[in-house]
């Protein structure tokens, strides 16, 4: 399969990339790891005339601590996230989700920015970044703006990013000390993409849940926060009875087209993900202070 002809340009700075995009925003595309864009171009579903490679822009790479946030450059690969000491200390959920993406090649090349901008409703990272309340730093011809991850995904493959804009970084507030995290997915047997992916962080004291966020991907039109479920969990004992009642609530925040299979799959994965915490607390004497 061949792509339609295109012009390739490699940007050295964000300003240069934005300047090139501004020449013809509708027919130009940013190229990051290429693991979503190039397959689409080979299927001729995408026919950009100009590809702007952002892979050499140093400002878009790397992970660093900025006050209470972990700031991750848009052109940071899954592998760098998985291996980052900062991520593993302050927002391990992100590494847990990144670890499950594709295979080694995909994780070596694919970037967090590419995954979020592509907005495939079956991508893994959205569950984690939603649960982690990420803020996106975006730059365009009219300057910089920040956008909460809530409201970034508008529809499958559609985000609030305007055609001339570039995602530059993802800012993730550090989790409260002692937060427990898990990402649990049911991979599609052929593609490995999640049929459902559940990302959770919880803080628990004396077996009572004080706070927690849950992001879910793969199963609905859009990745979503399971807010009803979060509200239900707060203040409850993390035990079998709570988990049993909690499972069905995740569907309250999603449009599952009344599909009984999806409803059941979602419930099973939420229940299993929460049960993992239960088991890990049981192993540590139920104090929740691991």
């Amino acid at each position: 399969m061949y792509t339609a002809p295109f012009e390739y340009r490699r940007a050295d700075t964000v300003e240069q990339a934005i300047g090139w995009l501004a020449n013809d925003p509708e027919n130009s595309k940013v190229l990051a790891g290429g693991h979503s864009l190039l397959p689409l171009m080979k299927l001729v579903l995408a026919q950009p005339q100009v590809l702007i490679d952002i892979g050499r822009i140093t400002a878009l790479k790397g992970i660093r601590i900025e006050g209470d946030d972990v700031q991750i450059g848009a052109f940071t690969t899954y592998r760098e996230i998985v291996e980052s000491p900062e991520v593993n200390e302050f927002c391990p959920l992100l590494a847990q989700a990144a670890q499950t993406v594709g295979d080694v090649q995909v994780r070596n090349r694919g970037t967090i920015g590419g995954s979020l901008c592509h907005a495939d409703p079956q991508a893994d990272m959205p569950a984690a970044v939603l649960a982690l309340d990420a803020e996106l730093l975006i730059e365009g011809p009219s300057g910089q703006r920040t956008q909460s991850i809530d409201g970034f995904f508008l529809a499958p493959f559609i985000t609030s990013l305007a055609p001339g804009e570039i995602l530059t970084a993802v800012k993730i507030p550090k989790l409260p000390a002692g937060a427990h995290t898990t990402y649990l997915k049911r991979p599609h047997p052929a593609s490995g993409y999640p049929l459902v992916g559940v990302g959770i962080w919880l803080t628990v004291h004396d077996q009572v849940i004080d706070n927690g966020h849950i992001g879910i991907t793969g199963i609905a039109d859009l990745p979503f926060r399971a807010r009803h479920l979060e509200d239900f969990l707060k203040g409850r004992l993390l035990d079998a009875a709570t988990i049993a009642q909690a499972g069905p609530l995740a569907a309250d925040d999603a449009n599952l087209d009344d599909d009984p299979y999806k409803k059941n799959l979602l419930q099973v994965y939420v229940t299993r993900a929460l049960s993992q915490f239960g088991e890990s607390f049981a192993a540590k004497g139920l104090n929740g202070k691991s």
């Binding site: 509708e26 027919n27 595309k29 979503s36 864009l37 689409l40 001729v44 579903l45 995408a46 026919q47 950009p48 901008c117 592509h118 907005a119 493959f157 559609i158 985000t159 055609p163």
Partner: peptide, 10 residues
């Protein structure tokens, strides 16, 4: 028509 849904353009 020009479809411009994120990556999908044509």
């Amino acid at each position: 028509l020009e479809m411009g849904v994120a990556a999908i353009k044509g």
